[in-house]
Amino acid sequence: MITIIAAAGENNELGKDNDLVWHLPHDFKRFKQLTTGHFIIMGRKTFESFPKPLPNRTHVIITRNKDYTPKVPEGREQDVIVVHSLDAALLKASADKQPFVIGGGEIYKQSIEASDKIELTRVHSTFDADTFFPEIDQSQWEKISEVRHDKDEKHSFAFTYETWVRK
């Protein structure tokens, strides 16, 4: 089962200048809880937005650059795999029963047809962004759960965890 995991604003905004446009600590905790121990598939820019590889996950980086060598701390090389297509990424991640596609926008667009589930954090505001999540076609997807989190002292925006499965 291939799962897309993302956080997007009301107009499907993902981020700007290769960064998130909000800070939601509970969403980070949920992302960590769901993806730890799994393969995470991402584009090069998403990988490079991390200060270092995320712990306890195998990173599958998609890039068109055949000469790309990611910067990886010594001893973490086995946690990073570079491939040159979504198909190659899915093949590498097939060792995991639950790989996650974690972005960015272009990788989400490419992978939505191959995915079985979407874990979407819908951030209840609009944002200035340059990267967007694809529209969820409700003729192909069904929302099976939603859990709202109101704005509070740690979260500047209300948000809802939405789980979608392919019909």
Rank of each mutant, 00 (worst) to 15 (best):
N56D: 11
P99E: 03
I62D: 11
K16L: 15
K52P: 03
L24H: 00
N65T: 04
G43R: 09
K97W: 14
G37I: 15
E13K: 02
G15F: 08
F100N: 01
A88I: 08
S94T: 00
K71C: 05
W22T: 08
A93V: 02
L24N: 00
P70Y: 04
K52S: 10
G15C: 06
A88Q: 14
N12Q: 08
I41L: 13
V60A: 05
D79C: 11
N65Y: 03
V60Y: 09
A95S: 10
I62Y: 12
V60W: 12
F39E: 02
D19C: 06
N56G: 07
Q78P: 08
E10R: 02
I40R: 07
G103A: 13
L20G: 04
R44P: 11
R44G: 12
K45P: 08
T35P: 00
P70V: 01
T63Y: 12
F28S: 10
E77D: 02
K66L: 15
R76P: 02
K32C: 12
K29D: 13
V21R: 00
E74G: 04
R57H: 09
I62S: 08
L34K: 01
L14K: 04
M42D: 10
F39D: 02
K71F: 10
P73A: 10
I81K: 12
K97D: 09
L91F: 14
K45C: 11
R76G: 02
S49K: 07
E74Y: 15
D17I: 15
D27E: 13
F100P: 00
L20K: 06
V60P: 02
K52Q: 12
R57K: 05
R57A: 08
L34R: 02
I61Q: 05
W22N: 08
D79I: 07
N11W: 13
Q33V: 14
N18V: 15
T46M: 14
L20C: 06
V21I: 15
I102C: 05
I102F: 10
R44N: 13
T58N: 04
H59C: 03
H84Y: 05
R30Q: 05
N11P: 00
T35K: 06
D79M: 06
E48V: 03
D67R: 01
V72R: 08
G37Q: 11
F100L: 08
K45V: 11
T46W: 13
R57M: 13
S85C: 03
D87Q: 09
I40G: 01
V60Q: 08
G75N: 03
M42A: 06
H84K: 00
R57D: 03
I40M: 13
K97I: 07
I81F: 10
E74H: 06
D19A: 12
T46H: 11
I41D: 07
H59A: 03
R64H: 14
K71P: 01
L86W: 04
F47R: 01
D19Y: 05
G75Q: 08
N11V: 09
E13Q: 12
N11M: 12
A95G: 03
H59G: 01
V21L: 02
L24I: 04
P53G: 05
A93F: 12
I81D: 03
E77G: 00
D19L: 06
H59Y: 14
I61V: 13
E13G: 04
R30P: 00
L14W: 06
S49P: 12
